[in-house]
């Protein structure tokens, strides 16, 4: 429309057309800044006019979230969201011209890379990985290092950012959460007789599978965005559990709390299922499953000897 009306436009902007502003992923904006764009505008239809109902509102929310992150890093003026209808030629010219002038004053984008990065995505997790990488890289280039946690207010947080919160009074350390997580967010390490469960904050998309599967309901998904945690590549530690050592082979094979829980379940019995409570002897968990098996097999050896 602006072209047809023969309006003057600055020469150094490029338009990338999408069917709806809702298609614009934060990853596109970050990748553009790295690839050589000095500024990015996301232009969508006015609220209420979206052909796809609410695509423009989603875009607005994403850009706002991204700007919050970039504000701390020092790049937030280079990204804007505007609502322009197809017939508003004048407004389009004004917006582009003003933005171009603003960017000229700011100068070239400091996070531009020399060589282009080839980004190929085939699953959600890769996209989150790239966004994470780009934000870390920008923070580094702009010498941004958070001194303490930088929490975003809950309303500003985009969908899908959060983390699992563990209740230390309920968790028995069975690891079902770690095994069910589809995004490899959770980490479980057994070192020196202690099991540590933690999570990689940036990967969690709050699907809630861990909270659902926990047999003790010890996990709650909290919606939260902490920029410092997001910039970290180390997993956050959630919970520490003592492990029991096998008296035969010396391996650390299970958390004490899980074994206690098993003992309690057996002792309690279950009226509905017709299980009468049974008190296990003290030494019943002295051996790991492998040693129990070998010792049970060892008892059979006598039959070989007897049959000679």
């Amino acid at each position: 429309m602006a072209g047809v009306s023969r309006l003057q436009m600055p020469p150094n902007f490029r338009i990338i057309r999408v069917m709806c502003s809702g298609r614009v992923d934060p990853l596109f904006i970050l990748a553009a800044l790295e690839d050589g764009a000095d500024g990015v505008i996301v232009a969508g239809c006015h609220p209420g006019d979206c052909h796809y109902i609410s695509g423009n509102l989603k875009a607005e929310r994403r850009v706002r979230f991204l700007k919050d992150i970039l504000k701390h890093i020092g790049l937030s003026e280079r990204v804007e969201m505007e609502f322009i209808s197809a017939s508003e030629a004048q407004k389009f010219q004004e917006v582009i011209t003003n933005f171009t002038n603003k960017i000229k004053k700011l100068g070239p984008c400091p996070v531009k890379r020399e060589t282009s990065r080839d980004i190929r995505i085939s699953e959600e997790r890769q996209k989150r990985d790239y966004i994470h990488e780009l934000v870390i890289s920008f923070a580094e280039s702009m010498n941004f290092e958070p001194e303490g946690p930088i929490e975003f207010p809950e309303d500003d947080i985009m969908e899908g950012y959060g983390f699992p919160k563990y209740d230390a009074d309920k968790c028995i350390g069975c690891g079902a959460c770690y095994r069910v997580c589809p995004e490899q967010v959770l980490v479980l390490n057994d070192v020196n007789g202690v099991r540590t469960i933690g999570h990689y904050y940036f990967n969690c998309r709050t699907c809630g599978d861990c909270a659902e599967i926990c047999p003790k309901e010890a996990i709650e998904i909290k919606k939260r965005f902490d920029l410092r945690a997001f910039l970290s590549i180390e997993p956050a530690k959630d919970i520490d559990l003592e492990l029991r050592q096998c008296k035969n082979c010396g391996n650390f094979f299970a958390p004490e709390l899980q074994l206690d829980d098993i003992r309690t379940t057996i002792a309690k019995g279950d009226k509905e299922k017709g299980f009468v409570g049974v008190e296990f002897p003290k030494n019943i968990f002295d051996l790991c499953p492998e040693c129990k098996r070998k010792i049970a097999a060892g008892n059979v050896k006598q039959i070989y000897v007897l049959s000679r």
């Binding site: 069975c174 690891g175 079902a176 047999p215 299970a254 899980q258 098993i262 057996i266 499953p289 049970a296």
Partner: peptide, 12 residues
């Protein structure tokens, strides 16, 4: 996949 059964089995 909690492992309770694996831990309680007397024969491992």
């Amino acid at each position: 996949g909690c492992g309770n059964c694996a831990l309680v089995c007397p024969f491992g």
